[in-house]
Design a protein around this nucleic acid. Structure first.
Length: 1071
RNA sequence: GCGGGAAUGGCGGAAUUGGCAUACGCGUCUGAUUUAGAAUCAGAAUUUUGAGAGUUCAAAUCUCUCUUCCCGUACCA
């Protein structure tokens, strides 16, 4: 009876499915163990042999833990929302749900063939409404929470409202937007409901804001920072630009410190922890305010005369009642919705304008309304007009209309060729520049300041003389893409603004420059330049001939800046003289705080995460809009199911794809989604058109597996208290700063809310390495249809062409006939052979369709079987390492399986006997038990495969067919090669599955030796071996060795200087 | 630039605490069996662990210097 892998594997896969062998219980006395894989996105291409690597490793561990008596949770599911299905839908009109379903079927079929011990009864799919109902629910929880810095945890927003009503916001220490206004309890209670909601939004953990986002025009969507690689989109490699949009964001920055601290408590790979640490980017320093000196009013671009300016002032000082009323509502808007009044656009003086949103609000009744509208439209502005009466009678209605326009109006194209300067007429009398520095100790080294070209003060402080130069520079910088700016870090560029800042300590004037080495998106977008201590400042100063004062004791800065902190003393710095870095830093901050122009601060690089995507195939937000303010839909009405649309593209007027849905409005009376035609803004409201990003569903799925069919809760308390967290998580390192950071954030939040018992979701994590493909290359003589074999390629000028690896045999020889049929271009080709063969070149590179080097696990399972595939993938090398795939190597593990089979089964059937095992046989078995157990515990799966091979080789040599040896051996192999183990187990007469059989116990007594073959070295070089009893003393050994004929021969009469004897290890003679 | 990791036969890779370098497998070669191929069995070779120095009786392993490669990140003040 021969080993027939197809028959055996089919039989046991069916057996496991039928008997639900791997169903985990939520209710048992066994200790729990939770092994998780990062769930796959089911792509249309299906799995290649690289994908299952991590699954095989985790499956081995899960099976091992079952043998060790654990109740193992080993689930699998699909991260099934995502861009490819949507792109495919756009191209073909096929609904993404259909594509996704098809792909999932393929994945499932492929996974089942490999014999994983997944508990499929717990499967989750992020795109199923039963699942995303709870993703929406988590979103609502975040919306209903704020982060209290005193308690250092998330708390309910209603608690905040209570405090506001009682004490205002002066006592609140919470994470919030930077531009919150301060108010008293009386103020709060007098605020309109909309106003209150606006303020609360600035505290919520998920909030709407106008943020500069990464907009990808080709994909028609916003991308998160971790979805961009080298300035282009991670998917598809399309260019990405910065753009302001109203978006949902997650206040992950509130958790920055805890996300850092948590890293010390989890067993994750150091490189991964390091990337998270860098990504969070904590830096300790100070915020310092510099005043701008001798500020001169910039003249308006369109040259208002002195008289006009005076008139303008007059109008501002004496507004009408209606103007006053409306301004009171608009003036507190901040950021991108900030309004300015009496602002000049072209030659027209507008009543109110929001520049970031291109919206003009005016009182009606002006004589030149038609001209104004034409001009404003050509400049890309929306215009809203109200009468005095409207404003006086219903100012909130007016504001709500304005808000709606801000929220939903599509942008207008500018038609005017010449864009007039937008310049504010300045009435403020004082400007301040805030900077963040990590080196407050070097503050006396400041000799200039640099602002990012995008800094809002640039236009305001630039002097007349420098105006042209500055504008040219700002424009030039704006034109350069992010990518160019990043690529070109060598060129030093910048322009003097003409303005000066006052050094807060010394009172000296320092020039203010702009330069693109300062980033608008980090810190405050401005730096205090300390050229002697920072290389970039130094280079900038050298380049523009700025002063480089030295504030370090006995340090030479003639060549480069001195960035070293330790061991240097501060000089020329007034009260900081003679102090070390640490002391000077503390004292400088103390003084700043005393004098009121600075304070100690910890800055994080981590930005709040943009949570809106302009896509169809994602979770809809449980949000509708009333008066321009977002409203959450109550949890009991979830899920809000993704609506049907005709087209999956953004709408023609630039709204996200959900803008195509006809039934996408929320009725607050029936609490259901209704047709858009019913929208009346009193009981039926428009729903949010964005969807959630890909990481929403993956940020909490590991908790859902614990209780995946629960309809009443996201996970029950009992389930989560039993399973607690993932014990072992295996997946790729590419998720280091995406999924793995967001998931930790959500876990901490849900922990704060008392919904989860632990605040880190995965105790141990392992990154499996990538499996690379080995491409096959043929060599075409350039300009001909002739192909030369590899050895001949240097004799010609050749083009390298990649061909399908399926056409290559194990000796790198090409099947020419098959190639001719494979692609038309080879049909009539001529092949020049070496020794009657065509040998191809091989190149190791990423597995990809375009290189034709993809190996499908189905083919391997078909030809060699799942057990061989599993063993081989582990045998390739250490789990974490990147390694190339070569199908030819699989014959080694395949012949091992056949050899193993032959120990149990002969021509006529089972040949296992009940004879007593010999000492040697027991030694082989126990050596194997020991090694395999250690290997699994250390995740060193590759070495266990060798151990199995050694065991099989030894037992074959010993002609061992004894049950006492072979039965325990099966339990050892079963995690790795479960099908053959089950089959042989049942052939030995066992009637139940091997999956929970106790792991064999290692007994050291079988390995005890009485003799040791000592290596005898001379000066560290091994010369011969000598068998001696282990219990022999040093003295006896020395006596025997010294008289040994080979020793005498080696020494050639010399007397050894020293003889080292380590009993049980080695004998070394020095001489 | 910064952070992390790595370097061992033709190839993938082993090597507990410093103690026989190259286990195990692929490939190559030889022989046996075989109509041939495939399969199976038996056997063989590859050369001192990227370079240099140090510590040690003893270094792939520890220390220092350098080189190369891979991964992550990037003007982070």
């Amino acid at each position: 009876m021969q080993y027939n892998h197809q028959e055996v594997e089919k039989k046991w896969q069916e057996f496991w499915a039928k008997n639900q062998t791997f169903k985990a219980s939520n209710n048992t006395d066994k200790p729990k163990y939770y092994v998780l894989d990062m769930f796959p996105y089911p792509s249309g291409a299906g799995l290649h042999v690289g994908h299952p690597l991590g699954y095989i490793a985790s499956d081995i561990y899960a099976r091992y833990k079952r043998h060790k008596g654990f109740n193992v949770l080993h689930p699998q599911g699909y991260d099934s929302f995502g861009l490819p299905a949507e792109q495919y839908a756009i191209q073909t009109g096929q609904h993404p749900a259909v594509t996704t379903e098809t792909n999932i079927k393929t994945y499932r079929r492929q996974l089942d063939k490999i014999g994983f011990s997944f508990d499929w009864s717990r499967e989750v799919r992020t795109s199923s409404p039963e699942y995303y109902k709870w993703t929406q629910w988590v979103f609502v929880q975040l919306f209903e929470s704020y982060y209290c810095k005193d308690a250092n945890k998330a708390k309910s927003i209603s608690e905040l409202e209570t405090i506001f009503a009682a004490e205002g916001n002066s006592t609140i220490n919470a994470v919030c937007d930077e531009d919150v206004i301060s108010f008293s309890a009386n103020d709060w209670n007098a605020f309109s409901e909309t106003k209150k909601q606006e303020i609360l939004l600035q505290y919520r953990l998920t909030f709407l804001s106008d943020t500069e986002v990464n907009w990808c025009p080709a994909l028609g969507t916003v991308l998160a920072n971790d979805e961009i690689v080298n300035g282009v989109s991670e998917r598809g490699g399309h260019p990405v630009i910065r753009k302001k949009m109203t978006q949902w964001s997650m206040r992950i920055s509130a958790y920055a410190q805890r996300l850092l601290d948590g890293l010390h408590t989890i067993d994750w790979p150091q490189p991964l922890k390091d990337s998270q640490t860098n990504w969070i980017g904590r830096s300790q320093g100070a915020m310092v305010t510099f005043k701008v000196a001798n500020f001169n009013i910039t003249e308006d671009a369109s040259k208002l005369s002195y008289k006009e300016l005076e008139a303008l002032k007059e109008i501002r000082l004496n507004p009408s009642k209606a103007e006053e009323t409306l301004w009171n509502e608009l003036k507190n808007k901040k950021g991108a919705t900030k309004f300015r009044r009496k602002y000049k656009i072209g030659t027209f003086l507008t009543d109110y304008v929001c520049l970031a949103k291109n919206l003009i609000v005016e009182f009606s009744g002006k004589e030149d309304e038609v001209e104004r509208d034409t001009y404003f439209a050509s400049e890309g502005f929306h215009v809203l007009r109200f009468t005095n009466e409207e404003v006086l009678e219903n100012v909130l209605g007016v504001v709500s209309k304005i808000n709606n326009t801000i929220q939903f109006a599509k942008p207008l194209e500018k038609t005017a060729v010449k864009v007039e300067e937008k310049k504010e007429v300045i009435f403020e009398d004082d400007y301040k520049i805030e900077v963040f520095t990590t080196r407050p100790d070097t503050i006396y080294g400041v000799s200039f300041m640099t602002l990012a070209p995008e800094h809002e003060l640039v236009a305001k402080i630039t002097t007349l003389e420098q105006k042209e130069a500055v504008e040219t520079y700002v424009e030039a910088t704006a034109k350069r893409s992010e990518r160019e700016r990043m690529a070109d870090v060598k060129t030093i560029s910048g322009v003097f603004t003409g303005a000066y800042a006052v050094h807060p300590f010394s009172g000296k004037k320092v020039p203010i420059w702009i330069g693109d080495y300062v980033l608008a998106s980090y810190g405050t977008g401005a730096v205090m330049a300390v050229p002697c201590g920072d290389q970039r400042d130094y280079d900038f100063a050298k380049n523009f001939g700025l002063k480089i004062p030295n504030i370090f004791e006995e340090v030479d800065i003639s060549e480069a800046a001195h960035a070293d902190k330790e061991g240097t003393k501060i000089a020329n710095s007034d009260f900081l003289n003679g102090l070390s870095y640490k002391k000077a830093m503390k004292l400088a901050i103390y003084e700043m705080e005393q004098r009121g122009f600075g304070y100690g601060k910890i800055n994080y690089r981590l930005r709040d995460a943009v949570f809106s995507r302009q896509r169809y195939w994602g979770e809809p937000f449980p949000v509708y809009y009333k008066d321009g303010m977002p409203q959450m839909i109550d949890a009991k009405h979830l899920p809000i199911v993704l609506p049907e649309v005709e087209k999956y593209l953004p709408t023609e007027d630039g709204k996200p794809p959900l803008g195509n849905a006809d039934v996408w409005a929320w009725c607050t009376e029936t609490n259901s989604v209704v047709g858009n035609e019913k929208i009346n803004d009193t009981s039926v409201f428009p729903l949010e058109l964005n969807t959630m990003p890909g990481w929403a569903g993956s940020s909490w799925y590991f908790n859902r597996y614990m209780d995946s069919t629960n309809e009443g809760e996201f996970v029950s308390k009992e389930a989560v208290d039993y399973w607690k967290e993932v014990d072992l998580y295996i997946g790729g390192s590419e998720h280091a700063t995406g999924h793995l950071l967001y998931a930790r954030f959500w876990q901490k939040f849900l922990f704060d809310k008392g919904l989860l018992p632990v605040d880190e979701f995965a105790k141990k994590l392992i990154n499996q390495g990538m499996i690379l493909g080995t491409s096959a290359i043929v060599y075409r003589v350039t300009g001909t249809n002739k192909y030369v074999s590899k050895a001949l390629k240097d004799e010609h000028e050749v083009d390298e062409i990649r061909v399908d690896v399926k056409l290559i045999n194990t000796s790198d020889e090409l099947d020419i006939e098959a190639l001719k049929k494979w692609q038309l271009q080879f049909e009539n080709a001529e092949f020049i052979l070496e020794e009657d063969k065509y040998v191809v070149g091989r190149e190791v590179e990423k597995m990809s369709k375009r290189w034709f080097n993809v190996v499908n696990p189905d083919d391997i399972c078909e030809e060699y079987g799942a057990d061989a595939l599993r063993l081989f993938e582990m045998f390739l090398g250490p789990l974490e390492q990147t390694k190339p795939w070569k199908t030819s190597g699989i014959s080694g593990v395949y012949s091992f399986l056949k050899k193993l089979w032959k120990l149990y089964v002969g021509e006529e059937g089972v040949i296992v006997t009940d004879e007593e095992p010999t000492k040697d046989e027991l030694k082989t078995l126990h050596k194997t038990i020991k090694k395999v157990e250690e290997d699994i515990e250390n995740f060193s799966f590759n070495t266990s495969v060798s151990t199995f091979m050694i065991a099989a080789n030894e037992l074959t040599a010993q002609k061992c067919h004894k049950r006492a040896i072979l039965e325990p051996l099966l339990a050892l192999i079963s995690p790795y090669a479960p099908h053959i183990a089950e089959e042989l187990w049942s052939k030995l007469g066992n009637e139940t599955s091997i999956s929970t059989v106790e792991f064999p116990k290692f007994e050291a007594s079988h390995l005890v030796e009485s003799e040791k073959e000592y290596p005898v070295s001379f000066n560290g070089k091994m010369r011969f071996k000598l068998k001696l009893p282990l219990d022999m003393s040093k003295e006896e050994i020395e006596k025997i060795v010294m008289v040994h004929e080979k020793t005498v021969q080696q020494l050639q009469g010399r007397a050894p200087k020293k003889v080292i004897i380590v009993p049980g290890k080695i004998i070394n003679i020095v001489g």
